[in-house]
Nucleic acid binder design. Structure first.
Length: 589
DNA sequence: CTTGTATGTCATGCT
DNA sequence: TTAGCATGACATACA
């Protein structure tokens, strides 16, 4: 792609646009994420940067006209052309970097991108250099993303062009989603947005609307938020979260998501307590099930740095406030029964411990688009949570409304989640699933900080379970969740056993059917043999009868007439010559 | 895009 | 009455 585009880049903007269009078409035609590999994106970004710089120089005098072009460019970004702007974004990041170590990390991240390091490599490098800080870095962008109050707001005048662009039908959206899913790309987008805002102030309207909330979420990050949040349109942010989480390692995604909430409502300490468990789990990258236990233990015990908090996964983040959110996602599939408790005390959960921000629909979304059923679930949750939490905090809407929104997320957020995040998620799901999974219940347990592992909740004997429960004071939401987890876990096992039995029964019945068929064939064959034998015996009997009858002679030495006489034999073997008439008489008698 | 499979979940009945 | 089990039905993800 790039090679083709490069030659065209120099010619003119029109050429550029054409290239972009072609590129988009390619994307639509099936350009997978692979196409958007980090290295590729980096290259593309650099190339685009150069292109844009040149173009900007040329067109600066035509700024206003360019606004429209910029909008298209944004559209292009959606499809994947954002990259070029990412460089400027990186510059912004570098600026921010000076302010905070986190920012510095961002800058490092951008630099890495420029180096064409793979995302994983970048992540590793970041992890090594800034074990916990990285999350913070990534988090800011996520915050931005998560904050966006509504998709509508996000999509203001800036995006319309791209959204409305006839060239970008559904496939474009998907491509956009995929691109957004890429963390680096998202950062680039954010940066680009900033640039565009700075340049034209075009985006500011929407960005400003969102900014307030962002600043709230990012107390320490306010300065950053002011810059980036404003720059980043809500849409981008949302998509960014989702995609970022998905694309990035769990830590990164978590980081981004966590940051916003922390700033908003939680103190570092609280944050640590809330999220530390997840952090450990993620840091250790140990099994999810085990994580739950660790989390419970570690959450209270180990102190965590604010920065560390950033590393927390979105799910964890949500746990702070978002707990409710977490459950919502769950609720869709699993909370129906359980949901009653949740439903009954939504407000409590929301405000208190683990309010349920998520609705069933959310969970479904999570499963479906974001994280897939389980593997992505954890990562997805963060996104959803962030969005929800951000929205809630940002907007004064009541928790109920939020819940409704969450429930409706598929509808309300379609642009974000379904439209953007879902496609990426679906593609990423497989990878992430294979890597590590947290079941929904495990996610929920984490979100509500259940001090037990899901495995314990499900498999402990009743007595032990009750004893365990009695040792911990759990709030209503937690109790309900634990009950639901246990019920669902039991039922899951029961369903598995039931299906196993069903299959075994089917196999057994098939085997029995085969046996019966074999027996049937055997009996048919035997019957045939018997019939043949019977016929032979009859034939032999007839022959013998005629032979014996023909040997008989009367007093005159004449043979008896078969019409007048017949041979009769008794049970003891005695044979009599009986006259036909007499025989008939005898029979009558 | 359709179809089949696997899995999770819920509802219900029974113990 | 509650918990658990068994199972049909449904929804979703995935190949």
């Amino acid at each position: 792609m790039m090679e083709i585009e490069l030659p065209k880049i120099h010619p003119s903007q029109q050429d550029m646009e054409l290239i972009d269009i072609l590129w988009r078409q390619d994307v639509d035609l099936g350009a997978g994420r692979e196409v958007f590999d980090f290295s590729y994106r980096q290259k593309e970004v650099e190339l685009r940067r150069q292109r844009e710089q040149e173009e900007e120089k040329r067109q600066q005098h035509l700024r206003e006209q360019e606004k429209a072009l910029l909008a298209q460019l944004q559209l292009d970004e959606e499809t994947g052309e954002f990259v070029p702007r990412s460089l400027p974004a990186s510059g912004t990041l570098t600026q921010t970097n000076t302010t905070n170590g986190e920012i510095a990390q961002n800058g490092a991240f951008a630099a890495q991108e420029g180096d064409a390091l793979s995302f994983d490599e970048c992540m590793q490098l970041l992890a090594e250099t800034f074990p916990l800080d990285e999350p913070a870095e990534s988090a800011p962008p996520c915050l931005d993303v998560s904050v966006p109050p509504t998709t509508d707001l996000m999509m203001p005048a800036d995006i319309p062009a791209f959204t409305q662009n006839p060239l970008l039908p559904g496939s474009l959206d998907q491509a956009w989603m995929e691109l957004l899913s890429l963390p680096e790309l998202q950062q680039c987008l954010n940066m680009q947005m900033q640039e565009t805002l700075n340049m034209d102030g075009f985006m500011k309207p929407s960005g400003e609307a969102q900014n307030p909330s962002y600043s709230q979420y990012l107390p320490g990050m306010d300065h950053l938020s002011s810059v980036q949040t404003e720059v980043c349109p809500p849409e981008y942010i949302n998509t960014y979260d989702g995609s970022f989480n998905n694309m990035v390692s769990p830590n990164l995604s978590q980081m981004s998501l966590n940051v916003p909430d922390v700033g908003a409502e939680f103190r570092p300490e609280e944050f640590n307590e809330l999220f530390y468990p997840e952090m450990e789990a993620k840091v250790n990258s140990g099994p999810l099930t085990s994580d739950g236990g660790n989390m419970a233990e570690t959450a209270s015990d180990s102190p965590v740095n604010p920065m560390d908090l950033q590393s927390f996964s979105p799910g964890n983040f949500s746990s702070g406030k978002p707990e409710p959110n977490v459950e919502f996602p769950d609720s869709d599939s699993g909370l129906s029964l359980d949901s009653s408790p949740h439903m009954s005390s939504p407000g409590k959960s929301l405000n208190g411990d683990g309010s349920f921000g998520f609705s069933d629909s959310d969970s479904e979304e999570m499963d479906g688009s974001p994280g897939g059923t389980e593997s992505d679930y954890t990562e997805i949750f963060p996104l959803v949570y962030l969005n929800d939490g951000a929205q809630s905090s940002l907007s004064d809407k009541s928790s109920a409304e939020q819940q409704e929104r969450k429930g409706k997320n598929p509808k309300t957020e379609p642009v974000e989640a379904s439209g953007y995040s879902k496609p990426p998620f679906t593609k990423d799901k497989q990878k992430k699933r294979s890597e590590a999974r947290l079941s929904r219940d495990e996610q929920r347990a984490k979100a509500l900080q259940i001090p037990f592992t899901v495995d314990m909740i499900i498999n402990l004997p009743v007595d032990d379970f009750n004893e365990m429960m009695s040792k911990h004071q759990l709030n209503e939401a937690q109790l309900a969740l634990v009950r639901d987890i246990r019920r669902r876990g039991k039922n899951k096992v029961a369903a598995q056993n039931c299906r196993k039995r069903k299959l075994e029964n089917i196999v057994g019945l098939e085997y029995e059917l085969d046996s019966l068929k074999e027996e049937k064939e055997r009996l048919k064959k035997e019957k045939s043999e018997r019939s043949t034998s019977l016929r032979e015996m009859k034939q032999q009997l007839s022959t013998l009868y005629q032979e014996v009858f023909g040997m008989l002679r009367d007093e005159q030495g004449k043979p008896f007439s078969p019409n007048e006489y017949s041979l009769q034999h008794t049970a003891d073997g005695t044979v009599f010559l009986v006259p036909r008439l007499k025989k008939t008489l005898v029979k009558n008698n």
